[in-house]
């Protein structure tokens, strides 16, 4: 078990190294330097700037320096657009907000998704099933950036129940989390239904019934664990998508999270910021995927850590 963990951690580390390398060169091979599109600063300032960002050094040296700073010291360097602030400062400020948003959304998605998926599966082909699945399909089909404004319009502007923008307390969290969570709730509902129906067909469920267990025990003990495995597998990719989705939701609801900074950095061509945040987000996702994988080996005894 320990060896397995160590190996997986090492693997994850190399993935992060790969991402760092890929993103670094991706940005550097871009046609035109960072200053191309703007008016050129005077040559002496230009030289100073190049020195500050080590742009005067050979590319490989720059890469080695950057990789060492990031991977060893967790230091993403200064922002390109706001030279007096470091990328780490932005992360310190923005990430807790994005993380909170993501956690709330995930909780909503899992609660709504699993319960409606279970209802649909247990009352298969009933009215409940059809309406739950139609709702799920609707959830998958309505993008965040349509749903968000819709919520703002209904719950904010018309009903005045909830604030439509900002991040100053519990009632500010509701609409963004619902918006971000709904699409995943829909996917989880579909996966839950599919997984449960698959399990229902298994021989061992017939065995459980033949043993005279009550329907409650058959469902809770014999079906749930296997039936929810697809949902667990989905949580990894879902987290990755959610980090992307948070960019949109943060924009709509004016949430001061890290996703906004990432989008702004891409729009402002703040290269070090875009690079740093990409690596940071990827590392978080890789770590989360690792946790999900390990959780999976505990849930499914047939999977051996090798």
């Amino acid at each position: 078990m320990f060896r397995y963990l160590l190996r997986r951690l090492l693997g994850a580390f190399f993935v992060v190294v790969g991402i760092t390398t890929f993103s670094f060169f991706m940005i550097r091979i871009a046609p035109g330097g960072p200053f191309d599109s703007e008016k050129m600063p005077p040559p002496e300032i230009m030289r100073n700037l190049e020195k500050k960002y080590h742009l005067d050094e050979p590319l490989m040296l720059q890469y080695a320096r950057y990789a060492k700073d990031v991977l060893v010291h967790f230091d993403f360097g200064p922002s390109f657009r706001y030279p007096e602030r470091s990328v780490n400062e932005f992360i310190d400020l923005g990430f807790p907000v994005t993380l909170r948003l993501a956690i709330y959304s995930m909780i909503i998605a899992v609660l709504i998704g699993i319960s409606s998926g279970l209802i649909a599966a247990l009352y298969q082909n009933s009215r409940w099933d059809y309406s739950a699945m139609a709702f799920a399909m609707l959830g998958v089909s309505i993008p965040d950036f349509v749903l968000g404004p819709l919520f703002q319009l209904i719950f904010g502007l018309k009903l005045h129940w909830l604030p439509i923008a900002g991040w100053d307390g519990a009632n500010f969290y509701v609409l963004p989390s619902l918006t971000l969570g709904s699409m995943y709730a829909a996917s989880i509902a579909r996966l839950t239904r599919g997984g449960m129906l698959e399990i229902t067909r298994q021989d061992f469920i017939r065995t459980a019934r033949a043993k005279g267990l009550s329907e409650r025990v058959v469902i809770l003990r014999h079906m749930l664990k296997g039936g929810l495995l697809p949902v667990v597998t989905y949580l990894g990719p879902a987290a990755a998508f959610m980090m992307g989705g948070s960019m949109v939701v943060e924009k709509i609801f004016d949430v001061p999270g890290l996703g906004r900074h990432f989008v702004n950095s891409a729009l402002n061509r703040d290269y070090t910021m875009t690079l740093g945040l990409t690596i940071f987000f990827s590392a978080i996702i890789v770590l989360f995927n690792l946790i999900v994988d390990i959780a999976y080996t505990f849930l499914d005894p047939r999977v051996k850590y090798e």
């Binding site: 021989d203 061992f204 065995t207 033949a210 296997g226």
Partner: peptide, 14 residues
């Protein structure tokens, strides 16, 4: 009851 295939008839998760 005893079933045909003990591999699929026993719950693999328990």
């Amino acid at each position: 009851m005893i079933f045909q295939d003990p591999l699929t008839s026993l719950n693999p998760f328990l």
